[in-house]
Structure formats: structure tokens, C-alpha cells
């Protein structure tokens, strides 16, 4: 693990040094391409607060969407007509670009937290729903026959077979939607906000404060990466029996 991290780290440092050298030697103006040191200099309390705001919005949207999607997937698996009736609506929500819906969310929910959280929910919901429905149906017929011969009730079959069977499917969806959640929150902030990384990106680009813009972009990437790895870490602890080949 540590030895595998050495090579990318070394390449990264070399790239940063080259970047710094080129900007300094060629006197590239800071509004075009700031040097790494100039970007680091913009890291202040405001950036950390912006990061925290966006991260909390994304996390809240991700958690609410995941719980909601799991609950609805459970209903879909139990009631076929519900799935037939509601799935097209879920697809319609999925195919509408979040950028197109965001202004409406700001009109309805204001420029506060909720318009961003709902944007994150809308973007996270679908992958979790689809994979959970698939996972809950994935248990082989033979396993279901085994439970039938043991006289298991539908609830027992669901709890002791279908849910654990679904976990690898659920987690691969959570990994996708965790990074999507950050996109949802930032898009919400673009449209109307008074804080957060999306707000910082809009403001700093308008003022040509490119170094701040860079640090905001890097912070946004870091938020997505942090969520992704947190899910991956939980997955490896929880689903020790699967080699993670389910998608």
C-alpha cells in the first residue's frame, strides 16, 4: 500500500515543480495560470468554511438520497405495480440535467442550504435506486428455494438473504453517487448562494482571482475524493466476502 503510493507521489511532486518553474521563468501572469505557491497562499479560513458548507450539503443530500432510494427500492421489490408505475418517473428525473432544474430549486427553496441539498438528492437518487433494485433481485433462485424449504417468511428471506446479497450492488452505487453529490451541491451554489465552493468559484472567476479559483476547484475535487474513499473503506470492512466484481 505505502510502496504503491510512492510512485504517484513522486510524479506529482515533479509535475508541481515543473509547473512552478515554467510559471516563474516565463513570467506567466497570475490571472492566467497561478504558480502552485500562489495557490497555496490563498488557502485561508474562508476557503475552509466554503469547503465545509459544500461538503455538508453534499453529504446531507447523499445520505437522504441513499436512504430514500433504498426505501423505495424495497417497496419496488415487494410491489411490482409500484415499480412499473414509478420507474418511468425516476428515469425522467434522471435524464433531466441537474443544471436545468437548479434554478427552479432556488426559486422554490431559496438560496439557503435546502436548494443545494435537494440538488444533491436529485443527482444521487437514481444510481442508488437502480442498483438496489437490481441487488435485491439478484439472489439466485436456488438460494430462494433453500429459504423456502426452511419455511422462511417473506420478511425473513428479505432480511437474511436479499439485503446482505444486495450490499455489494448498493455500495458500488454509493461510490458513484458520493462524487455526484458534490456536483449537485456546487451546481446548486452556482445558481444562487451566499456561501460554499460553488459561490467561491463564481465570485473568484468574476474577479479574475485565478489562484483562489484554483484552490476552490482543488477543494471541490478533494470533497468528492474524500466521500468516495470513505465509502470504499466502509465497503471493504463490511463486504469482506465479495471481491467487488458486481457493478
Amino acid at each position: 500500500m505505502t510502496s504503491r503510493a510512492v510512485a504517484p507521489l513522486a510524479f506529482g511532486l515533479v509535475a508541481l515543480a515543473a509547473w512552478q518553474a515554467i510559471v516563474t521563468i516565463l513570467h506567466v501572469p497570475e490571472y492566467l495560470l497561478p504558480a502552485p505557491t500562489a495557490i497555496v497562499a490563498t488557502v485561508d479560513r474562508a476557503l475552509v468554511v466554503s469547503f465545509a458548507v459544500t461538503f455538508i450539503e453534499a453529504l446531507a443530500g447523499f445520505l437522504i438520497a441513499s436512504l430514500l432510494a433504498f426505501a423505495i427500492a424495497t417497496l419496488f421489490v415487494h410491489f411490482r405495480t409500484l415499480e412499473d408505475g414509478l420507474f418511468p418517473i425516476a428515469i425522467a428525473i434522471k435524464t433531466t440535467p441537474i443544471v436545468a432544474i437548479a434554478p427552479l430549486l432556488v426559486i422554490w427553496l431559496g438560496t439557503g442550504w435546502w436548494s443545494k441539498i435537494v440538488a444533491a438528492i436529485l443527482i444521487c437518487f437514481f444510481p442508488v435506486l437502480v442498483n438496489t433494485v437490481k441487488g435485491l433481485k439478484a439472489a439466485d433462485l436456488e438460494y430462494r428455494e433453500l429459504f423456502e424449504t426452511l419455511g422462511a417468511s417473506r420478511a425473513q428471506e428479505f432480511r437474511k438473504l436479499r439485503i446482505p446479497y444486495c450490499l455489494p450492488y448498493l455500495f458500488s452505487a454509493l461510490k458513484i453517487s458520493s462524487s455526484l453529490a458534490v456536483i449537485g451541491a456546487i451546481v446548486g451554489e452556482f445558481v444562487g448562494a451566499t456561501q460554499g465552493l460553488g459561490y467561491l468559484i463564481i465570485i473568484s472567476s468574476a474577479h479574475l482571482e485565478t489562484a483562489t479559483l484554483f484552490s476552490a476547484i482543488i477543494a471541490a475535487a478533494f470533497a468528492g475524493i474524500a466521500m468516495f474513499y470513505a465509502i470504499g473503506f466502509t465497503e471493504r470492512r463490511l463486504i469482506f466476502w465479495s471481491s467487488g466484481e458486481t457493478e
Partner: peptide
């Protein structure tokens, strides 16, 4: 009482051997 054994072991991969063997009792008792 009728027991059934399939061609495949059909053990639940997230359970230890002991917990797999205990599955029928858990189901019967609820």
C-alpha cells in the same frame, strides 16, 4: 420433518460455518 440438500452448498457467504448451520433454527424460531 423433511430436510433438503441441494447440488450446490448454497452457504451464505457473509455467515461463518456455524452461523450458516444455525440458519434453519433462526428461521423456525423467528
Amino acid at each position: 420433518r423433511v430436510g433438503f440438500m441441494f447440488q450446490k452448498p448454497l452457504l451464505l457467504p457473509w455467515r461463518t460455518t456455524l452461523d450458516n448451520v444455525l440458519l434453519p433454527v433462526e428461521i423456525q424460531r423467528g
